[in-house]
């Protein structure tokens, strides 16, 4: 088991595994997402309360869901960075943070656009929108800190500490924003109640969530490969990559 763990930390080993996994992740991800979105857009019945604008849910919920889980994944990787100093964990944090930022932005944007026909306004200081906005700031902070530190090892550890501090704060932020929201806003605005959703709605939703997860996997592998190549470009195995494949382009 420890040998496996050690292997997992080897950039060379990961590079090969990622190269083999990536086509599957990409194809399956695009298929799932495509099926979910086409189903959701064209075939799912319309919501009797919100009409067709609810179809935004098929991208809003997956991106919001993923934006949050990416941060949790980054926090787990941060623990690994701090405890075992595994390089791959740090590579993952660096690769995933910008993706998380984009997904958070998508969920905020779609939430705002959804709000216009549903609530009659582009932005309300709804608890969920506000906590996603704060999540966007957290991602921004992680990326800014990583870019500001030149030394690779220091950047890895500093970012890991920041991510962990952030993840301790996320429940507190979420709770306090919920509480603040009930204080300041009458709770008249509610998104659709999820449990009452019929199968023709939640199956495509589930499909697009799975699809986006797979695409995130692909993106993470790709960006980690990039980071690994930058860090290890002088090593023998990177040079061997080209000679084994015939050398010339």
């Amino acid at each position: 088991m420890w040998q496996f763990f050690h292997k997992l930390g080897s950039p060379k080993w990961f590079y090969g595994i990622a190269a083999r996994l990536m086509p599957w992740l990409l194809v399956l991800g695009l298929l799932c997402l495509g099926a979910g979105l086409v189903w959701g857009l064209a075939f799912a019945p319309k919501d009797y309360l919100q009409g067709n604008s609810y179809r935004i849910i098929f991208i809003h919920v997956p991106s919001a869901f993923l934006a949050q889980s990416v941060y949790i994944m980054m926090a787990s990787a941060a623990v690994v960075t701090l405890v075992w100093r595994m390089k791959l964990a740090d590579v993952f944090v660096k690769a995933a943070a910008p993706v998380g930022l984009v997904l958070t932005f998508i969920s905020l944007f779609t939430g705002a656009v959804w709000g216009k026909p549903t609530w009659g306004t582009w932005w309300i200081w709804d608890a969920r929108l506000t906590s996603m906005l704060i999540l966007l700031f957290l991602y921004g902070g992680v990326i800014a800190l990583d870019r500001a530190i030149n030394d690779e090892k220091s950047a890895a550890r500093a970012v890991a500490i920041l991510v962990l501090v952030g993840v301790v704060n996320i429940p507190i932020i979420k709770y306090s924003v919920d509480w603040w929201n009930t204080l300041h806003q009458p709770a008249t605005f509610k998104l659709t109640e999820k449990p009452s959703m019929p199968a023709e709605m939640w199956v495509p939703l589930l499909l697009s969530v799975i699809g986006l997860y797979l695409l995130f996997g692909w993106l993470a592998c790709l960006r980690m490969q990039t980071e690994i190549l930058i860090r290890e470009q002088r090593t023998r195995w990177v040079q061997d990559l080209f000679h084994v494949n015939g050398g010339a382009r």
């Binding site: 704060i134 700031f137 902070g141 800190l145 500001a148 952030g166 932020i173 306090s176």
Partner: peptide, 17 residues
């Protein structure tokens, strides 16, 4: 500036309460 970016989100609960 970086310090403000990192810390302000973490200050929000204290401000709210």
């Amino acid at each position: 500036v970086l310090l403000s970016l990192l810390i302000i989100p973490l200050y929000i609960p204290v401000l709210i309460f």
